[in-house]
Design a protein around this nucleic acid. Structure first.
Length: 276
DNA sequence: CACGAGACCTGTTCGC
DNA sequence: TGCGAACAGGTCTCGT
């Protein structure tokens, strides 16, 4: 489920509260329950449970696809991977099948991490930078500029799609937003990064900005049974639209595999590189 | 350095 | 209806 816009939406809802749930900020953890140990990267389970108890939520943030809970004095980092989600629920709620971590709070609510596929990962650390140090720039950061993007595209020779998915190149894009951005830019996912012109790189930069902003504005995308609350899935241009018409030219969207990921393109708007 | 295969997991959907 | 294959918003490690 979660790429940058989904994680941003989750962070905002936890921070501010949503529906019946109150804001998370200011609550203190009275008890932690780890239901699937492998979710935890560091420290060990015993130390984790002891150390997180009595810490207070001071901020909820995001970096790339990581959720960052600033506690006192530690930080809890969470990566939702493929099927993770996290929300507040009353402590009286029955523990759902795929809950992996419960953080009981001092006001009767609990923070519940739910993750069917068990790919999600947790870190409790003194310094978030130890986990986040290899991440590339934030797409919406004011310091992320088109010319620098062009320079870095040309610093390696890789297919655009796998490069955009590489979190050390750019933080936050996943399969949906990469396919959407490449389509908007009119670039084939197999185009070699150092073969892009300055104009193409600038167009791709703008497309990334636009797609990510639209995703956030629509509270992310809700697909399948995993994530609910977003609307962006109703506005996909190519993602999971195999056989349906391209919104630009009407040509049926094709699905292929690029870098071992399902990839959706318009064969007319995104011509194969090389022959052109 | 760049790429592909396999691993980690469970659930849903599709084809026969 | 049943059953296996394919597929899923991600990332890591290993071999070439």
């Amino acid at each position: 489920m979660p790429e940058l816009p989904e994680v941003e939406t989750i962070a905002a809802r936890l921070r501010l509260g949503s529906g019946d749930a109150p804001p998370l900020l200011g609550k203190t953890i009275t008890r932690a329950r780890l239901l699937w140990e492998r979710t935890l990267v560091t420290p060990g389970a015993e130390e984790f449970l002891a150390r997180i108890t009595n810490q207070r939520f001071r901020e909820v943030g995001r970096r790339g696809k990581f959720l960052i809970f600033t506690l006192s004095p530690d930080s809890l980092l969470l990566h939702l991977r493929m099927s993770g989600d996290i929300w507040l629920e009353p402590q009286t709620t029955e523990v759902a099948k795929h809950h992996r971590l419960l953080l009981e709070l001092d006001d009767g609510w609990r923070l519940a991490f739910n993750d069917a596929r068990k790919f999600g990962r947790l870190w409790l650390v003194a310094d978030p930078a130890t986990v986040l140090k290899d991440l590339g720039p934030e797409p919406l950061d004011a310091g992320f500029r088109p010319n620098e993007f062009y320079r870095r595209l040309h610093a390696s020779r890789r297919q655009l799609k796998p490069l955009l998915l590489d979190q050390s190149f750019l933080a936050g894009l996943g399969n949906i937003y990469t396919d959407e951005a490449l389509h908007m830019a009119g670039l084939h996912p197999c185009t070699l990064s150092d073969a892009t012109s300055l104009a193409q790189a600038q167009k791709l930069w703008h497309s990334i900005q636009e797609v990510v902003r639209e995703g956030i504005r629509r509270n992310g995308a809700s697909i399948d049974w995993v994530y609910r609350g977003g609307d962006f899935q109703n506005h996909f241009r190519v993602y999971q639209r195999t056989g349906q018409p391209c919104p630009v030219c009407g040509t049926p969207i094709q699905r292929k595999v690029v870098g071992q990921r399902g990839t959706h393109i318009c064969p007319l708007c995104q011509p194969e590189p090389g022959e052109g």
